[in-house]
Simulated scan of single mutants.
Amino acid sequence: MTHVRFIGTDGTIREVVAAPGARLLEVAQADGQPLEGTCEGQMACSTCHVIVAADDFDKLPAPTEDEEDMLDLAAGATRTSRLACQIVLRADLDGLTVRIPGEVRNMQGR
């Protein structure tokens, strides 16, 4: 199992446990986190934008060019921003910490 820490917009920390192979977006939504995922994980929007803790960011595979294009549309994007629909949990990501951004821009990229 993989533990994930969500830091809410108000600073509240929630830790959940998920099975390896689960997508972070689905785990977040099941926990009631305010990630819309308007495009249902098709990488056609940025409404599942999260900010990954710096210590965890390098554990993730590099984002694709399409993901980087969507992140260009995300409100408040940072150097460690990713789309939750593109993060597949693995055992080595145990303890992954992500922050939920304070604002979301719902713009279709395609």
Rank of each mutant, 00 (worst) to 15 (best):
E103W: 02
A54W: 03
V88S: 09
T64M: 14
E67W: 15
G21I: 02
L83Q: 02
R90L: 08
A22D: 14
V50E: 01
R23V: 09
D69I: 06
A19D: 13
L73A: 11
G76W: 12
R23E: 09
R99D: 09
V27G: 09
S81N: 10
A75Q: 12
V98F: 08
T64E: 15
C85Y: 11
A74E: 05
E103Y: 08
L73K: 13
G32M: 03
E36N: 03
R23L: 11
L96T: 05
I87V: 15
L71R: 13
D31S: 15
I87E: 05
A91P: 08
T78M: 11
R23D: 07
V27L: 01
R79I: 10
T78R: 15
I13P: 00
E26F: 05
R5C: 08
E68Y: 08
D10V: 01
V16K: 00
R79W: 10
A77Y: 04
I13C: 07
S81P: 07
D58P: 05
H3F: 09
P61Q: 13
I7Q: 14
R99W: 05
V16C: 01
C85I: 06
M43G: 02
P61E: 13
E65S: 15
T80S: 07
I100P: 05
M70S: 14
A77P: 03
P20W: 07
E68L: 15
V52E: 02
A54H: 12
D69W: 14
A30K: 10
G41C: 03
Q33R: 15
L93V: 04
P34Q: 08
D94G: 08
Q42R: 15
F57S: 07
L89I: 09
L83A: 09
V17M: 06
Q29P: 02
D10G: 03
R5L: 11
L73Y: 15
I87C: 10
